[in-house]
Protein backbone atom coordinates (compact mmCIF):
# COMPACT_ATOMS: atom_id res chain seq x y z
CA UNK A 1 0.00 0.00 0.00
CA UNK A 2 2.68 2.51 -0.97
CA UNK A 3 3.72 4.99 -3.60
CA UNK A 4 7.42 4.90 -4.31
CA UNK A 5 9.55 7.86 -5.38
CA UNK A 6 11.48 6.96 -8.55
CA UNK A 7 12.74 10.50 -9.19
CA UNK A 8 12.17 13.12 -6.49
CA UNK A 9 11.64 16.27 -8.57
CA UNK A 10 12.97 19.59 -7.32
CA UNK A 11 11.32 20.07 -3.93
CA UNK A 12 8.56 17.52 -3.40
CA UNK A 13 6.99 17.32 0.08
CA UNK A 14 3.96 15.93 1.89
CA UNK A 15 1.54 18.71 2.88
CA UNK A 16 -1.95 19.10 4.28
CA UNK A 17 -4.06 21.96 5.64
CA UNK A 18 -1.18 22.98 7.91
CA UNK A 19 -0.30 23.31 11.56
CA UNK A 20 -1.82 26.52 12.92
CA UNK A 21 -1.60 27.38 16.61
CA UNK A 22 2.13 27.13 17.33
CA UNK A 23 3.49 30.32 15.76
CA UNK A 24 4.04 31.71 19.28
CA UNK A 25 6.64 29.01 19.88
CA UNK A 26 8.27 29.52 16.51
CA UNK A 27 6.52 26.76 14.56
CA UNK A 28 4.93 28.10 11.38
CA UNK A 29 1.72 27.12 9.61
CA UNK A 30 3.31 24.92 6.95
CA UNK A 31 0.77 23.08 4.78
CA UNK A 32 0.10 23.17 1.05
CA UNK A 33 1.24 26.54 -0.30
CA UNK A 34 -1.76 26.66 -2.66
CA UNK A 35 -4.52 25.61 -0.27
CA UNK A 36 -7.22 25.92 -2.92
CA UNK A 37 -5.66 23.46 -5.37
CA UNK A 38 -4.76 21.15 -2.47
CA UNK A 39 -8.40 20.99 -1.35
CA UNK A 40 -9.63 20.47 -4.91
CA UNK A 41 -7.23 17.51 -5.30
CA UNK A 42 -8.55 15.81 -2.16
CA UNK A 43 -12.20 16.37 -3.05
CA UNK A 44 -11.61 14.90 -6.53
CA UNK A 45 -10.49 11.56 -5.03
CA UNK A 46 -13.20 11.46 -2.33
CA UNK A 47 -10.82 12.31 0.53
CA UNK A 48 -11.48 14.51 3.51
CA UNK A 49 -10.34 17.84 2.06
CA UNK A 50 -7.61 18.15 4.72
CA UNK A 51 -5.91 14.82 3.87
CA UNK A 52 -2.18 14.86 3.14
CA UNK A 53 -1.10 15.12 -0.51
CA UNK A 54 2.13 15.33 -2.49
CA UNK A 55 3.17 18.91 -3.26
CA UNK A 56 5.40 19.12 -6.38
CA UNK A 57 7.44 22.27 -7.00
CA UNK A 58 8.62 23.46 -10.47
CA UNK A 59 9.86 20.00 -11.48
CA UNK A 60 7.50 17.13 -10.63
CA UNK A 61 8.61 13.69 -9.41
CA UNK A 62 8.25 10.24 -10.96
CA UNK A 63 6.03 7.94 -8.92
CA UNK A 64 5.66 4.17 -8.90
CA UNK A 65 2.37 2.87 -7.50
CA UNK A 66 2.73 -0.43 -5.65
CA UNK A 67 -1.05 -0.66 -5.28
CA UNK A 68 -4.08 0.22 -7.40
CA UNK A 69 -5.31 3.72 -6.53
CA UNK A 70 -7.50 6.67 -7.51
CA UNK A 71 -5.38 9.77 -8.15
CA UNK A 72 -6.01 13.43 -8.99
CA UNK A 73 -3.60 16.20 -10.03
CA UNK A 74 -4.44 19.89 -9.58
CA UNK A 75 -2.60 23.21 -9.49
CA UNK A 76 0.25 23.85 -11.93
CA UNK A 77 -0.19 22.85 -15.58
CA UNK A 78 2.02 19.74 -15.70
CA UNK A 79 0.40 16.98 -17.73
CA UNK A 80 0.42 13.66 -15.83
CA UNK A 81 1.22 10.45 -17.70
CA UNK A 82 0.49 6.89 -16.63
CA UNK A 83 3.11 4.60 -18.19
CA UNK A 84 3.64 7.32 -20.78
CA UNK A 85 -0.04 7.82 -21.68
CA UNK A 86 -1.56 11.23 -20.96
CA UNK A 87 -3.92 11.40 -17.97
CA UNK A 88 -6.24 14.34 -17.22
CA UNK A 89 -5.57 17.24 -14.87
CA UNK A 90 -8.32 18.36 -12.48
CA UNK A 91 -10.03 14.98 -12.86
CA UNK A 92 -9.62 11.76 -10.87
CA UNK A 93 -8.18 8.73 -12.67
CA UNK A 94 -7.31 5.14 -11.78
CA UNK A 95 -3.83 3.64 -11.67
CA UNK A 96 -2.98 -0.04 -11.30
CA UNK A 97 -0.31 -1.64 -9.13
CA UNK A 98 2.98 -1.33 -11.01
CA UNK A 99 1.98 1.81 -12.92
CA UNK A 100 4.49 4.62 -13.21
CA UNK A 101 3.19 8.20 -13.07
CA UNK A 102 5.36 10.92 -14.61
CA UNK A 103 4.72 14.57 -15.44
CA UNK A 104 5.56 16.88 -18.31
CA UNK A 105 7.33 20.12 -17.41
CA UNK A 106 5.24 22.82 -15.72
CA UNK A 107 3.98 24.94 -18.58
CA UNK A 108 2.24 27.29 -16.18
CA UNK A 109 2.17 27.59 -12.41
CA UNK A 110 4.72 26.45 -9.87
CA UNK A 111 3.04 23.80 -7.70
CA UNK A 112 1.09 20.70 -8.64
CA UNK A 113 -0.81 18.67 -6.06
CA UNK A 114 -1.13 14.90 -6.30
CA UNK A 115 -3.90 13.48 -4.12
CA UNK A 116 -4.26 9.73 -3.68
CA UNK A 117 -7.56 8.30 -2.41
CA UNK A 118 -7.00 7.46 1.25
CA UNK A 119 -4.42 10.23 1.68
CA UNK A 120 -0.68 9.96 2.33
CA UNK A 121 -0.61 8.28 5.72
CA UNK A 122 2.46 9.75 7.41
CA UNK A 123 2.41 10.40 11.20
CA UNK A 124 0.44 13.35 12.56
CA UNK A 125 2.73 15.75 14.42
CA UNK A 126 1.20 18.68 16.34
CA UNK A 127 -2.08 18.11 14.52
CA UNK A 128 -0.71 17.95 10.98
CA UNK A 129 1.01 15.69 8.46
CA UNK A 130 2.72 18.66 6.78
CA UNK A 131 6.47 18.74 6.24
CA UNK A 132 8.32 21.59 7.94
CA UNK A 133 11.73 21.35 6.30
CA UNK A 134 13.57 23.94 8.43
CA UNK A 135 12.37 22.19 11.59
CA UNK A 136 13.07 18.75 10.07
CA UNK A 137 9.76 17.28 11.25
CA UNK A 138 6.39 16.37 9.82
CA UNK A 139 5.63 14.86 6.44
CA UNK A 140 7.87 11.98 5.40
CA UNK A 141 10.80 11.93 7.86
CA UNK A 142 10.74 15.72 8.11
CA UNK A 143 12.24 16.32 4.69
CA UNK A 144 11.83 16.61 0.94
CA UNK A 145 11.12 13.29 -0.77
CA UNK A 146 14.11 11.33 -2.09
CA UNK A 147 14.67 8.38 -4.44
CA UNK A 148 13.36 5.13 -2.96
CA UNK A 149 11.01 6.68 -0.38
CA UNK A 150 7.85 4.59 0.03
CA UNK A 151 4.84 6.68 1.02
CA UNK A 152 2.14 4.80 2.92
CA UNK A 153 -1.40 5.23 1.58
CA UNK A 154 -4.49 5.33 3.82
CA UNK A 155 -7.77 3.55 3.19
CA UNK A 156 -9.82 5.17 0.40
CA UNK A 157 -13.33 6.38 1.25
CA UNK A 158 -16.44 4.93 -0.41
CA UNK A 159 -16.57 8.15 -2.46
CA UNK A 160 -13.29 7.44 -4.27
CA UNK A 161 -13.90 6.99 -8.00
CA UNK A 162 -12.29 7.79 -11.33
CA UNK A 163 -13.77 10.40 -13.65
CA UNK A 164 -14.79 13.01 -11.08
CA UNK A 165 -14.09 16.34 -12.76
CA UNK A 166 -13.45 19.85 -11.48
CA UNK A 167 -15.47 22.29 -13.64
CA UNK A 168 -12.99 24.32 -15.76
CA UNK A 169 -14.19 27.64 -14.29
CA UNK A 170 -13.30 26.40 -10.80
CA UNK A 171 -9.72 25.39 -11.63
CA UNK A 172 -6.93 27.52 -10.15
CA UNK A 173 -6.02 30.34 -12.58
CA UNK A 174 -2.30 30.30 -13.55
CA UNK A 175 -1.48 33.75 -14.95
CA UNK A 176 2.09 34.89 -15.64
CA UNK A 177 1.17 38.36 -14.37
CA UNK A 178 -1.02 38.96 -11.38
CA UNK A 179 -2.12 41.50 -8.80
CA UNK A 180 -1.46 40.86 -5.13
CA UNK A 181 -3.58 42.83 -2.69
CA UNK A 182 -1.84 44.37 0.32
CA UNK A 183 -3.10 45.84 3.57
CA UNK A 184 -0.43 48.41 4.58
CA UNK A 185 1.11 48.11 8.04
CA UNK A 186 2.59 47.54 10.64
CA UNK A 187 5.67 49.61 9.68
CA UNK A 188 4.28 51.20 6.52
CA UNK A 189 4.71 54.61 8.17
CA UNK A 190 8.49 54.08 8.09
CA UNK A 191 8.72 54.57 4.29
CA UNK A 192 8.22 57.90 2.55
CA UNK A 193 4.98 58.67 0.73
CA UNK A 194 6.75 58.86 -2.65
CA UNK A 195 8.40 55.53 -1.99
CA UNK A 196 5.06 53.93 -1.08
CA UNK A 197 3.63 55.20 -4.38
CA UNK A 198 6.55 53.62 -6.27
CA UNK A 199 6.07 50.34 -4.46
CA UNK A 200 2.47 50.08 -5.65
CA UNK A 201 3.22 51.46 -9.15
CA UNK A 202 6.15 49.18 -10.01
CA UNK A 203 5.97 45.74 -11.58
CA UNK A 204 7.89 43.17 -9.56
CA UNK A 205 9.37 39.89 -10.83
CA UNK A 206 9.72 36.73 -8.74
CA UNK A 207 13.37 36.03 -7.90
CA UNK A 208 14.79 32.51 -8.47
CA UNK A 209 15.28 31.86 -4.74
CA UNK A 210 11.54 32.13 -3.93
CA UNK A 211 10.41 29.12 -1.90
CA UNK A 212 7.99 27.92 0.79
CA UNK A 213 9.65 30.15 3.38
CA UNK A 214 9.52 33.39 1.48
CA UNK A 215 8.82 34.74 -1.98
CA UNK A 216 11.39 37.33 -3.01
CA UNK A 217 10.56 39.94 -5.67
CA UNK A 218 12.93 42.17 -7.67
CA UNK A 219 13.07 44.81 -10.41
CA UNK A 220 11.04 47.49 -8.59
CA UNK A 221 12.57 50.70 -7.23
CA UNK A 222 14.31 50.55 -3.82
CA UNK A 223 12.39 51.92 -0.85
CA UNK A 224 13.21 55.24 0.79
CA UNK A 225 12.86 55.27 4.56
CA UNK A 226 11.90 58.24 6.69
CA UNK A 227 14.81 59.58 8.75
CA UNK A 228 14.97 58.50 12.34
CA UNK A 229 17.50 57.65 15.01
CA UNK A 230 17.41 53.83 15.13
CA UNK A 231 15.96 52.79 18.52
CA UNK A 232 17.95 50.71 20.98
CA UNK A 233 17.79 47.05 19.95
CA UNK A 234 17.19 47.72 16.25
CA UNK A 235 19.96 47.13 13.71
CA UNK A 236 21.66 50.06 12.01
CA UNK A 237 19.99 49.63 8.60
CA UNK A 238 16.81 51.73 8.24
CA UNK A 239 14.91 48.56 7.23
CA UNK A 240 15.64 47.16 10.72
CA UNK A 241 13.28 47.34 13.68
CA UNK A 242 13.37 46.07 17.22
CA UNK A 243 12.47 42.37 16.81
CA UNK A 244 8.75 41.76 16.31
CA UNK A 245 6.41 38.95 15.33
CA UNK A 246 6.06 38.36 11.59
CA UNK A 247 2.52 37.70 10.38
CA UNK A 248 1.96 35.08 7.66
CA UNK A 249 1.87 37.03 4.38
CA UNK A 250 3.82 39.99 5.72
CA UNK A 251 6.18 41.84 3.39
CA UNK A 252 9.67 42.69 4.62
CA UNK A 253 12.25 44.55 2.56
CA UNK A 254 15.80 43.91 3.84
CA UNK A 255 17.96 46.90 2.96
CA UNK A 256 14.91 48.40 1.23
CA UNK A 257 15.77 46.58 -2.01
CA UNK A 258 13.88 43.33 -2.60
CA UNK A 259 10.51 42.68 -0.91
CA UNK A 260 10.06 39.22 0.60
CA UNK A 261 6.59 37.85 1.26
CA UNK A 262 6.66 35.39 4.12
CA UNK A 263 4.81 32.20 3.20
CA UNK A 264 3.75 29.10 5.14
CA UNK A 265 7.21 27.90 6.29
CA UNK A 266 8.44 31.34 7.40
CA UNK A 267 10.13 32.15 10.69
CA UNK A 268 7.76 33.72 13.20
CA UNK A 269 9.69 36.84 14.06
CA UNK A 270 12.73 38.99 13.46
CA UNK A 271 14.11 42.47 12.93
CA UNK A 272 12.91 43.63 9.52
CA UNK A 273 10.18 46.22 9.13
CA UNK A 274 7.03 44.83 7.52
CA UNK A 275 5.51 47.39 5.21
CA UNK A 276 2.28 45.47 4.65
CA UNK A 277 0.61 42.08 4.54
CA UNK A 278 -0.72 40.19 1.52
CA UNK A 279 -4.41 39.45 2.08
CA UNK A 280 -5.14 35.81 2.89
CA UNK A 281 -7.26 35.35 -0.27
CA UNK A 282 -4.19 36.06 -2.46
CA UNK A 283 -1.61 33.81 -0.76
CA UNK A 284 -2.46 30.83 -3.02
CA UNK A 285 -1.72 32.94 -6.11
CA UNK A 286 1.84 33.44 -4.88
CA UNK A 287 2.30 29.68 -4.59
CA UNK A 288 1.67 29.37 -8.34
CA UNK A 289 4.23 32.00 -9.41
CA UNK A 290 7.33 30.71 -11.18
CA UNK A 291 10.56 32.70 -11.09
CA UNK A 292 10.22 35.75 -13.36
CA UNK A 293 6.42 35.82 -13.19
CA UNK A 294 5.28 39.40 -12.58
CA UNK A 295 3.22 40.94 -9.80
CA UNK A 296 1.85 44.34 -8.97
CA UNK A 297 0.98 45.14 -5.38
CA UNK A 298 -2.46 46.73 -4.95
CA UNK A 299 -3.30 48.67 -1.82
CA UNK A 300 -6.57 47.63 -0.15
CA UNK A 301 -8.17 48.20 3.25
CA UNK A 302 -9.36 45.63 5.78
CA UNK A 303 -12.95 45.68 4.49
CA UNK A 304 -11.77 44.78 1.00
CA UNK A 305 -9.54 42.04 2.45
CA UNK A 306 -12.43 40.51 4.36
CA UNK A 307 -14.72 40.71 1.31
CA UNK A 308 -12.03 38.90 -0.72
CA UNK A 309 -11.77 36.24 1.96
CA UNK A 310 -15.55 35.71 1.89
CA UNK A 311 -15.39 35.40 -1.91
CA UNK A 312 -12.57 32.84 -1.62
CA UNK A 313 -14.63 30.79 0.84
CA UNK A 314 -17.70 30.97 -1.41
CA UNK A 315 -15.61 29.67 -4.33
CA UNK A 316 -14.43 26.73 -2.22
CA UNK A 317 -18.06 26.01 -1.31
CA UNK A 318 -18.86 25.84 -5.03
CA UNK A 319 -16.02 23.32 -5.43
CA UNK A 320 -17.40 21.21 -2.55
CA UNK A 321 -20.87 21.19 -4.14
CA UNK A 322 -19.52 20.41 -7.62
CA UNK A 323 -17.42 17.48 -6.36
CA UNK A 324 -19.83 16.10 -3.75
Amino acid sequence: MTVEIVKPGLATTIQDAGRPGYYNVGIPLSGALDQYSFRCANLLVGNDENAAVIECTLLAPELLFNVAAIVAVTGADATPRVNGTTAPRNESFAVQAGDKVTFDFMRLGARAYVAVAGGIDVPVILGSRSTYGLGAFGGFQGRKLAVGDKLPIGKPSAAAKAGRQLPAELAMPLPKETELRVVPGLYFHRITEASADNFFADTWAVAPEADRIGYRYKQGRPLQWRDRKQPFGAGSDPSNIVDAGYPYGSIQVPGGVEPIILHRDAVSGGGYAMIGTIISADMDKIAQMQPNYKARFVRVDMDAALAARAEYKARLDRVRKALA
Binding site: L59, F105, M106, P208, Q290, P291, N292
Partner: peptide, 9 residues
Protein backbone atom coordinates in the same frame (compact mmCIF):
# COMPACT_ATOMS: atom_id res chain seq x y z
CA UNK B 1 16.91 20.35 -25.85
CA UNK B 2 14.24 21.96 -23.64
CA UNK B 3 14.67 23.34 -20.15
CA UNK B 4 12.81 21.06 -17.73
CA UNK B 5 12.25 23.86 -15.20
CA UNK B 6 12.37 27.65 -14.78
CA UNK B 7 15.40 29.47 -13.40
CA UNK B 8 18.79 30.84 -14.42
CA UNK B 9 20.74 28.95 -17.09
Amino acid sequence: VLSPLPGTF
